[in-house]
């Protein structure tokens, strides 16, 4: 559908494509296409508006680089801005006096439990001694799931026989500490950002385990709603970074841009499959190309 952003721009820009400078007419026409591309990628429409306004201002009067036409020049500009925006902020986890606590939060089914196990594996490969704490006492067999994942990668999982997630989190942390682990990852139940009671419960879990890293686990297929989700989790829980999941599919992943633009919080990891080694550090430039849906044009731009 949209591996042809550059084609579409060339079509729209017509003769303007051969101009030496981006004039107002060319920029306006190009921005219409960019706007559509971003909306089709599920970037929140308010974020699209602001972003496009910013790029437009930057594009006006810009000299067109040798070897590029006007369309490609615009794409390059948009791409670079997008990558810059998404790449700002520290994408590394914070580590303090051990044990460092990582709290996993997010909507139902976004990938928290799977990502918890992946992170544990990732950190052990970096020489840490991680453990997992089961604090989802809600979803049927959620603890079983975490225990089975822990077993697959030989990472200890702490469960407490209680119906209170705050207690499960706190006791799990204590025991992990007692066992000399230096990173403790707390898996929580999925919850909707509009569920006041469950958001409040999450805040109490956070207060009990004092995480140095609160991560929002976000499904890359999320639509316009991503902004509401991010705002609410930001307000109630104040997360430090995002893990974007299910990027192995064909979702354009505009939600990533929405969340970054609204909260300013960095995207730290990309999850690219169901297997436990399928976790990657986040690449802003790849994400920018993905959101714009461009393949061929990138190589052109890189050469320019």
């Amino acid at each position: 559908m949209f591996d042809t952003l550059s084609d579409r721009l060339q079509l729209t820009l017509g003769d303007l494509g051969r101009a030496k400078r981006l004039d107002e007419d060319a920029v306006n026409k190009a921005m219409r296409e960019i706007r559509l591309a971003l909306l089709e990628a599920d970037v929140n429409f308010q974020v699209v508006k602001d972003f496009v306004a910013g790029v437009k201002a930057a594009a006006l009067g810009e000299d067109i680089l040798k070897g590029l036409d006007a369309g490609q020049q615009v794409v390059k500009l948009v791409h670079d801005r997008l990558a810059e925006l998404m790449g700002s902020g520290d994408s590394k986890l914070a580590f303090g006096r051990p044990p460092t606590v990582i709290l996993m939060t997010g909507l139902q089914g976004s990938g928290k439990t799977t990502t918890s196990a992946k992170l544990a594996l990732h950190l052990r490969r970096q020489g840490k001694r991680p453990g997992l704490v089961a604090a989802d006492l809600q979803r049927p067999a959620a603890i079983d799931q975490l225990e089975q994942l822990g077993r697959q990668i030989a990472i200890p999982v702490y469960r407490t026989d209680t119906s209170d997630p705050v207690r499960a989190a706190a006791e799990g942390l204590e025991r992990a500490k007692g066992d000399g682990l230096d990173v403790v990852i707390v898996d929580t139940a999925g919850r909707l950002h509009v569920d006041e009671a469950l958001m409040d419960e999450l805040a109490r879990v956070r207060d009990a385990v004092k995480p140095l890293n609160v991560l929002l686990v976000l499904d890359a297929m999320t639509g316009q709603e991503a902004v509401n989700v991010a705002e609410a989790f930001q307000r109630r829980i104040a997360f430090d970074g995002v893990v974007l999941t299910k990027l192995d599919g064909d979702a354009r992943g505009g939600a990533a841009l929405s969340v970054k633009a609204i909260t300013g919080k960095p995207i730290k990891f990309a999850s690219v499959g169901e297997k436990l080694d399928q976790l990657e550090v986040f690449h802003p430039d790849r994400m920018a190309s993905r959101i714009l849906g461009m393949g061929d044009v990138l190589t052109l731009i890189e050469k320019a």
Binding site: E40, D42, G109, D219, M221, A251, R252, G254
Partner: peptide, 8 residues
């Protein structure tokens, strides 16, 4: 999932 965007 109702929160899904155009990928749906």
């Amino acid at each position: 999932d109702a929160t899904t965007g155009q990928n749906g």
